[in-house]
């Protein structure tokens, strides 16, 4: 801490310090805080009654259920996949490792709309598997299945991306030690690897949950926008907004924002509670 006192920043003139802080605060307020506030202000513009009516509407409720369902399927899938991928990439050497890492990153770099379109081209009526699926009466695109697929693809990198750098830094010494002491692979994984990465894992899960609930682009392509059936919360917000039902649109949007805020709060709370352990792990 004593090093900070002598740092050049501390010798800057006060007006410069104040000015820079003001710029930073104003920027955050304009870009992050105000939009968030506006969502709640607009949602409550006509009172709590209209707000609750907006959320309690049958179509809104089905959108909320669908969104939670999609997240409940996509996030566990990606957690398992992310763990497995990170484990493979960081603890072993094999041919095609770089290719695998690139593939994991792919959903980050392609537009979500393209992600959705890919599924239409594969499973749509005129897609590669379309005729076969139709013969067997299986509906993938424009159904919940398609929405889950698109969401899973878009949120695929989050867990793996959180884990890989940490596991790389940790190396595989502890696992090697466990193996030489006679632990089998599964035991090593549950007693050494998993406890070592649990914070990063949790962070990845929270991030992918938030993204899974908020995804618009990919889902809008594969949803078909059937009201009360394949409209997730972000799509329902668009539908309501387009129906001039601004209060209800913002009410659903505020609920979505609330989900995200709760996610962040949980993360902060856990971090505060286990900060010592976390710090110990970072410096390991």
């Amino acid at each position: 801490m004593s090093g900070l006192a002598k740092s050049p920043a501390r010798r800057d003139p006060p007006f410069l310090v104040a000015g820079l802080i003001a710029v930073a605060v104003a920027y955050l307020a304009l870009v992050v805080f105000l939009p968030l506030v506006i969502v709640f202000v607009e949602a409550l513009r006509k009172g709590v009654g209209d707000y609750l009516a907006g959320i309690g509407d049958a179509e809104a409720l089905s959108a909320i259920k669908l969104t939670l369902l999609v997240a409940a399927i996509a996030v566990p899938l990606n957690t398992i996949f992310g763990l497995a991928a990170a484990w493979c990439v960081t603890k072993f050497d094999f041919k095609g490792k770089n290719l695998l890492v690139t593939l994991i990153d792919l959903p980050f770099s392609i537009s979500p709309v393209i992600s959705g379109l890919i599924y239409v081209l594969l499973y749509g009526a005129n897609g590669w598997f379309g005729p076969w699926l139709q013969e067997h009466n299986i509906q993938i695109i424009f159904s919940v299945t398609g929405i889950v697929l698109a969401t899973t693809l878009v949120t695929l990198p989050f867990v793996a991306r959180e884990l890989i750098p940490l596991m790389q830094a940790q190396g595989s010494d502890e696992e090697a030690a466990a193996t030489t002491l006679g632990a089998n692979g599964l035991r090593t994984f549950f007693l050494i690897t998993l406890p070592n990465v649990k914070w990063a894992l949790m962070y990845g899960v929270l991030l992918s949950t938030a993204r899974a609930m908020g995804e618009f682009g990919a889902v809008s392509v594969v949803s078909g926008k059937i009201r009360g059936l394949t409209a997730t919360m972000p799509l329902q917000v668009e539908i309501l907004y387009n129906e001039y039902n601004f209060v209800a649109a913002f009410a659903v949007a505020s609920l979505l924002a609330l989900f995200a805020l709760v996610t962040l709060a949980v993360k902060t709370l856990l971090e505060a509670r286990f900060s010592d352990e976390l710090a110990a792990q970072r410096w390991r």
């Binding site: 239409v120 005129n126 059937i226």
Partner: peptide, 8 residues
């Protein structure tokens, strides 16, 4: 377009 792509 969506109907052509299989929206039932």
């Amino acid at each position: 377009r969506a109907v052509i792509d299989g929206l039932p």
